[in-house]
Nucleic acid binder design. Structure first.
Length: 572
DNA sequence: GCCGTTTTCGGCCCGACTGTTTTCAGTCG
């Protein structure tokens, strides 16, 4: 069982937390966190990189020492230094640091003074009123800890982007009513269109004297006001979502927007570039000495460090700064580039609308084509069509196409990939289709090698065209099944197959990193909604967001092609 | 512990808010 990047990253983060509690050199602590971020976000597994003989010190923030530690973890699953540290500092202390308001210093104090090691210890200590006796803690701290421990669930919950939108939109409408408000924008990972967001960062500018903060904390969805200041306030909404509101002068709007959009790694890298040029960059602007020389727009900030504007979706320090320096940034795909949708269901399997209704909805979005991809015969529980049923459906589509104007329905099927890699219909039936969308829907728990081989074998079939939702994950609900994505993409490349970026907001499968890997390997992508209703068709925008995070351009995406060119791609 | 068209040693992003303090440490983003 190969070690996942996330496991390596978690170990580095835990080690960093414990070292911080032990009062280690803060820069050493940061080095471990930085390495964790690099490893967690890396599109290829450390294990595969080592197999290929890649020198890990080439990766950002990985030096000789950490490269060795990663190698040790890949080979043995162990990080000896972590074991060593955990032997003298209780491992659960790093959990305590996740409680809001508790950092390394206070966790250390709680441990030294009251021998608190676990959440349970902390809860008891708070209830028995021992905490306020420690130097640096008072009655308020004790009370807050008591409340926070009560609410603490242990896991940091990130909210799916589309759910965050549902929370953000009414709040934004409410905030816009504030007296004296000028600009308002949601920054942070929401603006970078990350698939999940941890909190909402809202940036505003306003007329002098306007009481925006009062208005904000008075929102009727506010559950708790964490802090409230002149330029910054933090609240929790009833939904559990944390919202930060920041107020900056208009002259600083661009610098603040850049700062609060992040990512942190991108910001730090840009700041470092500023320092090299003798500037200081913060949320108020770019400064040369005391003089503000830029900051009204984001572009002005990039300008000062000698870079072109970088789209928010790219700001992850995953090579965008290097690309920008060389003027090689991708021209990111937009929703307008999309000409059709290659994955949709109707009432014939598990969809909610008829062929005609789906066709008209797709035409209404300005599409040239919509592919009808009912489930195949093995997927009985999702209304999969048997051979006869599919043939009849094909005829229905032919007939409807004669009546339709401006849009063409493509005859396809979401064909199951069986456990042995065979497709769920015989070839003589598959050849009646314009193309196929093939997918794994059962036997999610095969070992990595077998699962990978299953999909690769399926691609050997000349009627295999697009691999749908390649990992099967459901965000926050179901883990991806174990595969070697790189090997699958290589097989797709070799067999002239394509890979889907499923735009369902709970799937978004490929990931952004998967898109980057596909692009690097020369595999083109279908961004498709897997629509089960007419309204689902509008989830295309979610897929496009994810594609943009994955550096994709219109030329990388097959459903940006006109119909005649698209169909040529499916002849293998 | 990482990193280097000034450096292989000496830097490492920085400002706001809170609470516990009498001038600032701790935490957060």
């Amino acid at each position: 069982m190969p070690v996942h990047n996330s496991e390596i990253a978690d170990k580095f983060d835990r080690l960093a937390d414990l070292l911080e509690i032990e009062n280690a050199n803060p820069f050493r602590v940061r080095a471990y966190h930085n390495a964790a971020r690099t490893v967690r976000g890396y599109p290829r597994s450390m294990s595969d990189l080592l197999d290929d003989g890649v020198d890990l010190t080439e990766l950002p923030d990985i030096g000789d020492d950490l490269a060795k530690k990663i190698q040790s973890m890949v080979e043995t699953g162990k990080l000896p230094l972590l074991d060593e540290v955990e032997a003298r500092t209780p491992p659960a202390l790093s959990e305590l640091m996740k409680v809001e308001g508790l950092g390394p210093k206070r966790v250390r104090a709680l441990h030294l003074e009251l021998h608190i090691e676990t959440l349970d210890d902390l809860k008891k200590a708070a209830e028995s009123g021992k905490i306020h006796e420690i130097a640096g803690f008072g009655d308020k701290s004790e009370e807050k800890i008591k409340q926070r421990v009560e609410k603490f669930s242990g896991e940091e919950k990130r909210t799916k982007l589309i759910e965050a939108e549902d929370i953000a939109k009414p709040l934004l409408e409410y905030l816009k009513k504030a007296e004296g408000l000028k600009d308002i924008v949601i920054a942070g990972s929401y603006r970078r269109r990350k698939e999940t967001v941890g909190d909402l960062d809202i940036l505003v500018t306003a007329k002098k004297g306007a009481d925006i903060m009062e208005h904000f904390t008075g929102y009727d969805e506010v559950d708790e006001v964490v802090s409230k200041g002149v330029t910054r306030s933090t609240v929790y909404l009833r939904s559990g979502m944390q919202v930060d509101l920041r107020l900056v002068p208009q002259a600083s709007y661009g610098a603040a927007l850049h700062y609060f959009t992040g990512s942190k790694a991108h910001n730090i890298a840009v700041r470092k570039m500023g320092v090299k040029k003798g500037y200081k960059i913060n949320e108020y602007g770019v400064f040369k000495g005391d003089e503000r020389i830029a900051g009204k727009t984001e572009k002005s900030v990039y300008d000062k460090v000698g870079l072109p504007y970088i789209e928010p979706e790219l700001r992850e320090n995953r090579g965008e700064l290097e690309a920008a320096k060389k003027h090689k940034l991708p021209k990111l795909i937009t929703l307008d580039d999309i000409r059709g949708n290659l994955h949709a269901h109707t009432k014939a399997s598990d969809g909610h609308h008829t062929l005609k209704e789906m066709a008209e909805a797709a035409a209404g979005l300005g599409y040239e084509y919509l592919a009808i991809t009912e489930h195949s015969q093995s997927l009985a529980f999702a209304g999969g069509l048997d051979k006869k049923g599919l043939l009849a459906h094909i005829k229905k589509i032919d007939k409807l196409n004669e009546q339709l104007d401006g849009i063409v329905l493509l005859k396809s099927s979401e064909v199951d990939i069986l456990e042995d890699g065979a497709l769920d219909y015989p070839d003589e039936l598959l050849k009646e289709l314009d193309f196929t969308v093939c997918a794994v829907h059962q036997k999610f728990d095969l070992p990595r090698k077998k699962q990978t081989e299953r999909i690769r074998r399926a691609m050997d079939n000349p009627y295999f065209n697009i691999l749908a939702h390649p990992s099967g994950r459901l965000i926050n609900e179901r883990d991806p099944y174990e595969t070697d994505l790189e090997k699958i993409l290589e097989a797709a490349k070799d067999n002239d197959c394509f890979v889907e970026l499923n735009a369902q907001p709970q799937r978004l499968d490929l990931t952004d990193e998967g898109c980057m890997m596909a692009k690097a390997l020369g595999v083109k992508i279908s961004i498709a909604t897997d629509a089960h209703s007419t309204s689902d068709l509008e989830h295309m925008r979610c897929g496009v967001d994810q594609a943009r995070r994955g550096w994709l351009e219109a030329k990388d995406v097959i459903n940006c092609l006109p119909l005649n060119k698209l169909l040529r791609l499916f002849k293998r």
